[in-house]
Structures are given as structure tokens and as C-alpha cells.
Write a protein that binds this DNA or RNA. Structure first.
Lengths: 146, 146
DNA sequence: TCAATTATGAAAACGTTTTTCAGTAAAGAA
DNA sequence: TTCTTTACTGAAAAACGTTTTCATAATTGA
């Protein structure tokens, strides 16, 4: 994986390539998201982001996350207790493993699902277009503290 | 599966066994949920439910869904575009197959995931406590109309 | 039938997200 | 560099869905 500084730079380039201006508030949001390995709500991005750019507005956080999501750089995370949180995305399709306590996210690949998808598709008559596979649990650090 | 009338009756009994009173608004909500095979938001339950009990209030819909969820009779459904919808639950752990167009839901079982869970647990050090597997697509009827 | 207590719905409060809008700042041209 | 165009910004307001409050109504068991 890219290190965090490289990831920030790449994201900013990509914003530029998509015709967006590089502004201080956007840089702050990009740095927060690109440097985080935990799920963050817009309000949390706002709080952390103001450490980097004090005048940052919550509205801009929403607008920037929206753009980053459309560009596939961050993805929305769905959790049992609420679904408005974001995490840096990764290339290609990956599944998520989320710590219920601290929000830390890891990715795992390995689609063992193809056979199951074929079977469910045949049984149900549905045309399956997308799937979610997410695991929830406790990361190593939170196991020790709970 | 129980037919819909039986399911309503069972749910009402279960409410009673849990110490809750059987009221007209609750009956309306139970009938809506027990008779539906599509995902419904609280507002939709409210709209449909008023057809059965005109004085039904939205607040009571929320309160009743909360109880039904706690009793395991309905479950919350998470979708890419929003996560506050409910569907009648089924016994035991099942996975969902959701029509992106009309919200119809089917259930499928067959946990082929045990091996994968063990592997991810070992690789990551996480203690995996729960998982979601959901498929999204088009049901037979919506394939014809799209 | 009555009394105790739960449940109800209207209204208000709440927290989050979106829209509006006047002022600001980025980026390319001169 | 300065200028000009246009996109972007944040504060405030609006909109939205959900929860709380509270006086009234309805269910239940005695």
C-alpha cells in the first residue's frame, strides 16, 4: 500500500485531474482521510480537519467527501449502529473487517463467493449485481482492553 | 414459512408474552410488516399502516418497530443508499438478497464462510464476532421491466 | 365496572445533512 | 505580476428524519 504522504499527494493530483481546484480545506480533508485507518464520520473528519486548517467548515467536509466517494477514493461504511462513516478505499474490490470498538478497518480479498453467487442466482432467479461481505469484531488492541 | 396471517398472529402473541398490550396501532404495524416481502422504511410502514388504522402515528411506528426488532421479529436492512429500512426476519441466521429496484427480499442460508472466517481471523488477529453477507440485484419481475 | 398502568399521537426538540447566498480564493491569461 | 473569470467557501437557514415530552386515551386484570 502507498504510505500516507504518497496517498495524500495522489488524491490531490486526482482531484486536479478531475477539474477540481486544490484548496486548503480540501487538502485538510484529504489528509485526514488518507492518513486514517479507522472509520470516520463527517463530524469526526471536521474535528480532526480543523487541526490542519482552522477555518474548515462542516459543509465543505460533506462536499469533499462526496467528491472523494464519487472518485472511488473513499468508501462509505455501513455498520449495525449507523451508516454514515467513511474510510479510505483500496484498489479493486475488497471486503472489510471492522473493529466494533475503535473503528479500525482492514481489508481482505479472496472471493470464495463465486460459487455461492451462482447458486443463489440460479435458485432465486435474481440477477446479482453487487455484494457486500463484511466482518465485525475486535482488533488485537481492543481485545486486550476489553 | 408461515403464511402471512399466521405470522401476524404469532407476532401478536409474542408481543403479549413479552408483557406488551395489544393495541390497534400495534396490530396495524405488525400486519404491515408480517405481510410484506419488501424492505420498508418507517415512513412507508406509516403510510401503509394508516390504511389499516387511520389514526396511526409515526411515533408509534418507530416505537413498535423498535420492539419488534428487539424481539427478533424484524431486522434492519442496510443498503448502499440508506440504512433505515426493515424487513420481517426469519429464524436462525440467514443472509439477504435484495432487489435494488423494488426492495423485495429473499433469504438464503448455507454458510460457506466458516473457512474464510478462520483464515481472516488468523491473518488479521481480529476476533470476528459477526458478519454480513448481502447480495444486491434485480428480482425476476424487475429484470423484465428494466 | 373500575382502577392502575401502559400506550398513544400532537407538538416540540434534536441532531444531521442540504441548500442558499454573499464574499473569497484559485488558476489561467495577459 | 496583475487581472479576470469562475469555482469554492463558510455562516446561516432550511430541510429532513428521529426522539422526547406530555396530557389524553385505551387496555388489562381485579
Amino acid at each position: 500500500m502507498l504510505n500516507q504522504q504518497e496517498r495524500s499527494r495522489t488524491w490531490l493530483q486526482e482531484l486536479k485531474h478531475n477539474g477540481y481546484r486544490l484548496t486548503s480545506p480540501r487538502k485538510a480533508v484529504v489528509e485526514v482521510m488518507a492518513n486514517s485507518d479507522t472509520v470516520l464520520s463527517p463530524a469526526e473528519v471536521y474535528d480532526i480537519g480543523r487541526g490542519r486548517y482552522a477555518k474548515l467548515g462542516l459543509v465543505t467536509v460533506y462536499r469533499t467527501l462526496e467528491k472523494l466517494e464519487a472518485m472511488g477514493l473513499v468508501q462509505r461504511v455501513h455498520r449495525p449502529d449507523g451508516c454514515e462513516a467513511f474510510i479510505a478505499g483500496v484498489e479493486g474490490h475488497q471486503h472489510l473487517l471492522i473493529c466494533e470498538n475503535c473503528g479500525r478497518v482492514e481489508y481482505f480479498g479472496g472471493d470464495k463467493l463465486d460459487g455461492l453467487i451462482d447458486k443463489v442466482q440460479g435458485d432465486s432467479g435474481y440477477e446479482i449485481r453487487d455484494h457486500w461481505l463484511q466482518f465485525f469484531g475486535l482488533c488485537r488492541a481492543c481485545q486486550r482492553n476489553n
